[in-house]
Design a protein around this nucleic acid. Structure first.
Length: 275
DNA sequence: AAAACACCCTGCCTGC
DNA sequence: TGCAGGCAGGGTGTTT
């Protein structure tokens, strides 16, 4: 499941491979993507065909491929999306939904079995239209900002951290891991964790940095732009470990469902505050 | 107005 | 062996 570290890994790969390349043509499977929405082919074509790629950026979980046409093609990988750079002669994988044909026989391919991903466009300077919150690895996520964010609501802290409009780029895996790192029970009402803002900020950043260093977490189908798996799954402390002993206290890792999503935590290391 | 929830989709895994 | 059902969950639209 691509979250910030996986998207960042792909971004770095693509920046190396694609920067300076010219796009010759585009192709779509014709299938709609997220929310059954068709791709705006005219907009993508205007920013792609005949254009040169100038840089590849990331905002939250979005990949922004800027061209010399003055904007970016915006790709979100959703749950099962992958971007691969391959030879045009290699057969296209099932569920290939979009292809940018590049120079020297190369293709950038968007493969997404579940079609939860999206492809759109953006004019340079209008990145805020994506509506995402602060970058957790950037300077905006100060202890003070995070503390104020926590103070504002009684929502469970896990739900708050998953809200992309508040903090951008965290998904289910890294929220579980960060809350474990900070010793905070996922059901804690956010305002009760105000005093833990510094610890939480440190944990969020550590978890994300470690995963980027490990080139992402591959649980099922995530691979980088060259189809290599990540290695961060070996370092997970709680995610996917229900019933297994906590590496620190030995208690079995617990699982609960919050807003229809699995939450993994250690009842020993992450006590629920009594108020 | 915030928060909870339903829905989009396919592949994989489990249990009968 | 085959098939039904549960599960995975990010983001968005809808309801409460």
């Amino acid at each position: 499941m691509p979250e910030l570290p996986e998207v960042e890994t792909i971004r770095r790969d693509l920046a190396t491979i694609l920067t300076g390349m010219r796009i010759r043509s585009i192709w779509s499977s014709g299938k709609p993507l997220r929310m059954n929405r068709p791709i705006d082919m005219a907009a993508v074509e205007g920013l792609s065909v005949g254009c040169r790629i100038v840089e590849v950026m990331r905002l939250a979980k979005y990949l922004l491929i800027y061209t010399d046409a003055g904007g970016a093609v915006v790709v979100h990988l959703g749950m099962s999306g992958n971007l691969h750079v391959e030879s045009e002669r290699s057969p296209r994988a099932p569920h290939t939904h979009f292809v940018w044909t590049l120079e020297r026989g190369r293709e950038l391919r968007f493969v997404d079995p579940r079609r939860f991903g999206s492809i759109g466009t953006l004019v340079r300077g209008e990145e805020e239209s994506l509506g995402v919150g602060v970058e957790p690895l950037g300077p905006q996520l100060s202890v003070r900002y995070l503390g104020e964010l926590l103070a504002q609501t009684r929502r469970p802290i896990k739900t708050l951290l998953l809200d992309q409009k508040k903090v951008a780029g965290l998904g289910n895996i890294y929220v579980c891991e960060a809350l474990f790192g900070a010793g905070i029970h996922p059901s804690t009402p956010a305002y009760l964790a105000q005093g833990n803002a510094a610890k939480l900020r440190t944990a969020i950043r550590a978890v994300l940095r470690k995963s980027i260093a490990n080139r992402g977490t591959t649980l099922r189908d995530y691979t980088d732009a060259s189809k290599r798996s990540g290695q961060n799954q070996r370092t997970l402390q709680v995610y996917g470990r229900e019933g297994d002993p906590c590496f620190y206290c030995g208690n079995p890792i617990a699982r609960q469902i919050d807003s229809n999503r699995s939450t993994f935590f250690c009842p020993g290391c992450q006590p629920l505050p009594t108020e």
